[in-house]
């Protein structure tokens, strides 16, 4: 299952889906949000979540959710039928406490859904696999919906998109993201730390077409790290890779000390890694601004599978 399935994750809500299904829409934040994963055909998984301090009455919530869908269908004069059914608790529900109900609905589209309260992340999550009424996705839907909010690695949120899976400490929240074709960037921040994960596609055909990886790093990537005196060296890695670390320059250090006195803490160090995976034709880079002696980059290098 693991070869043809990949993890899609956003804001701590994750699921496993066939690897040719892709994240196409994200919105909201940790407390309330949405994402959609499309199949190559017309099926899709939609996931919505909102923070809930206590476990709500899921049957009642599911009824409200389905009533709203039915109302919309009636307005369009489309027939609508739905059913709510109880589900066996998943291992995650048994482990962290939580509950879920299943539902199905049929209209001009049909869906298998799961509404759950996650005892780990204290969120109410609704996931549904929507497809054409003729398609029978019951088996696939059960596998996808059963994998929502597994929290397999407590303390870490899995961010997964476009074949990239990055586990990030839960203490770091998403500050900025850029999801472009052949360039993905996720920036996280929290408690005086900043983590930047970047991935470039088409590496051999664009970035490294007229230069080597080492030269590209020295001339483009490392120059982008401003305000730090950075030293880089190649490291042992299955791919051509480089580790770097830097300290704030004296002037910046003095300015950061003043900022700290004013209540703003500035990261003192930056550490990171960058590697070129020829198998996937991609460059990966992890950059961690922090106050401690060691950064997250070696841990993340081990956790990120590039091909």
């Amino acid at each position: 299952m693991s070869d043809n399935w990949s993890v899609v994750g956003w804001q701590g809500v994750s699921l496993r889906a066939p690897s040719d299904w892709n994240l196409v829409a994200v919105s909201g934040e940790e407390n309330k949000g949405y994402f959609r994963v499309d199949s190559p055909s017309s099926s899709a998984v939609e996931v919505r979540w909102e923070a809930a301090k206590q476990a709500p009455d899921l049957d009642a919530k599911a009824d409200i959710f389905l009533d709203a869908l039915g109302k919309t269908a009636r307005k369009k004069r489309i027939s609508f039928s739905s059913r709510v059914k109880s589900r066996k608790p998943t291992p995650a529900e048994e482990k962290y406490g939580g509950d879920s109900v299943g539902f199905t609905w049929k209209s001009d589209r049909s869906a298998y859904g799961r509404m759950l309260y996650c005892g780990y992340c204290k969120r109410l999550v609704v996931g549904q696999v929507v497809s054409e009424p003729k398609q029978d996705l019951s088996g696939l839907s059960a596998a996808i919906l059963g994998s929502i909010c597994e929290h397999a690695d407590p303390g870490w949120n899995t961010w997964g998109l476009y074949d990239l899976q990055v586990p990030v400490p839960e203490s770091l929240g998403l500050k900025r993201h850029s999801l472009m074709s052949s360039f993905v960037e996720l920036e996280f921040a929290g408690r005086g730390e900043r983590l930047l994960v970047q991935r470039w596609g088409l590496a051999a055909n664009t970035l490294l077409k007229k230069t080597s990886f080492a030269d590209w790093l020295a001339n483009s990537y490392l120059r982008g790290i401003e305000g730090y005196r950075v030293v880089a060296a190649s490291v042992e890695d299955p791919h051509e890779a480089l580790a770097f670390e830097g300290r704030r320059s004296l002037l910046k250090f003095l300015l950061s000390t003043i900022s700290r006195l004013r209540g703003k803490s500035m990261p003192r160090s930056v550490t990171g890694r960058a590697w070129y995976c020829e198998d996937s034709n991609r460059i990966y880079a992890v950059r961690h601004y922090h106050r401690g002696d060691s950064g997250l980059d070696p841990v993340l290098r081990d956790k990120i599978k590039c091909h």
Partner: peptide
Amino acid sequence: TYKLNRREAEVSVTT
């Protein structure tokens, strides 16, 4: 050819 994710290829080609 370029080892792009299907979605990435779709977005760039259609654009």
